[in-house]
């Protein structure tokens, strides 16, 4: 029997009538583990316990994956060479990958979450990252599931002293996507940076929950979202900066810039700042609306028709995020896909 579980919970919640406090997804009775042929080893039970890191989607998804016997796979990546993950989603399948960035090392990871249009069902992909002292993790994700695959992409990170986790996510087309991200900034001067570009249309749902938990002094976080919505798309973005007592000197900022291209979309933005520490600086800014007519007029005066001008703006939403990809190979990979998608259009 399918299980209806709660993910992406807003903590603390707000008015129920706004329908942003959480998302519910129906998960299959049986989900299969996606194998990874190269570069990973399955964690034993003790190893799995060691990867008990909270994620953006939350505990109910963890309990579901555990009950389904989805074991974490520990990735052996520990060099600057790009580690590419392209899970082979089949109907109702899941994978959990764990990355341990050892002290002072840099990890470059690219995940390409895609599927053929023949794949029908639910795909769950989870990444757990432990960034140890002075390490850097550059995680790039491109999310482009086929029409038949509902995708749940879930991330949990623990960031130690002076470590840094850079996440770049590019959401292009595809089906319904639920995305969770949680970063526990437990080390002094730890830094988590999220750059997100999204283009959604064709009645697609994108439900997001991003949490930056500042536990240590001088920790820093940034969430930047740029996107374009059209054609019945529904997007909910929850972004939480949580300053916990003791994180003196911490700074957190989130920004969202969303273009709404027609009247059929629903855009919900929920940017929380929670604070129990005096000496912090937190900020949020959002800009939501139609493209500036002056800009469109300028582009049209240069011979670009309105449709093409809007396409250029959509592409810019994605490239604004992609520009922050640190690894050259990952950047090339993502830009090729962005351009490929635009050519298909």
């Amino acid at each position: 029997m399918a299980e209806n579980i709660m993910i992406n919970s807003l903590v603390p919640p707000t008015w129920n009538r706004l329908k942003v406090n959480e998302a519910f997804v129906e998960l299959p009775e049986k989900i299969n583990m996606i194998s990874q042929d190269e570069g990973v080893v399955p964690a034993d039970d003790a190893g799995a316990d060691a990867w008990n890191i909270e994620t953006g989607c939350g505990d109910e998804l963890s309990a579901y994956l555990n009950a389904q016997g989805i074991k974490p796979l520990t990735a052996a990546a520990n060099s600057e060479e790009l580690f590419v993950v392209k899970p082979a989603f089949t109907a109702d399948s899941a994978q959990v990958l764990c990355f341990d960035a050892t002290e002072g090392k840099t990890l470059n990871i690219l995940t390409d979450l895609s599927s053929g249009d023949d794949v029908q069902g639910t795909g769950v992909f989870r990444i757990l990252i432990r960034a140890r002292e002075n390490s850097v993790v550059n995680l790039t994700q491109i999310l482009r599931p086929g029409k038949g695959l509902r995708l749940i992409n879930d991330i949990g990170t623990q960031v130690s002293d002076k470590a840094k986790v850079n996440l770049v996510q590019v959401f292009t087309g595809g089906s319904d996507i639920y995305a969770g991200y949680r970063s526990e900034l437990s080390g002094e001067d730890a830094f988590a940076d999220c750059r997100i570009g999204l283009v959604r249309g064709e009645n697609e749902t994108l439900d997001m929950n991003y949490v930056m938990k500042h536990l240590a002094p001088r920790s820093k976080s940034e969430i930047n979202v740029s996107g374009a919505l059209s054609n019945g798309a529904k997007k909910t973005f929850r972004g939480t900066i949580d300053f916990v007592r003791g994180c003196a000197g911490a700074e957190g900022a989130e920004n969202e810039s969303i273009l709404i291209l027609d009247d059929t979309v629903i855009n919900k933005t929920v940017p929380l700042i929670l604070c129990t520490e005096e000496n912090v600086a937190g900020s949020h800014g959002a800009s939501i609306g139609k493209p500036a007519e002056e800009m469109l007029y300028y582009m049209m005066s240069r011979g670009i028709d309105r449709k093409r001008a809007l396409e250029i703006l959509e592409r810019a939403s994605l490239t604004a995020a992609a520009a922050h990809i640190e690894n050259a190979d990952a950047l090339e990979y993502v830009m090729n896909i962005i351009d490929e998608n635009r050519e298909d259009d």
């Binding site: 603390p12 707000t14 008015w15 706004l18 942003v20 969303i258 709404i260 009247d263 979309v265 629903i266 855009n267 919900k268 933005t269 929920v270 940017p271 929380l272 700042i273 929670l274 604070c275 949020h284 959002a286 939501i288 609306g289």
Partner: peptide
Amino acid sequence: DTIPVMDIR
């Protein structure tokens, strides 16, 4: 705590 919601249609 600051808990804003924007719902734009």
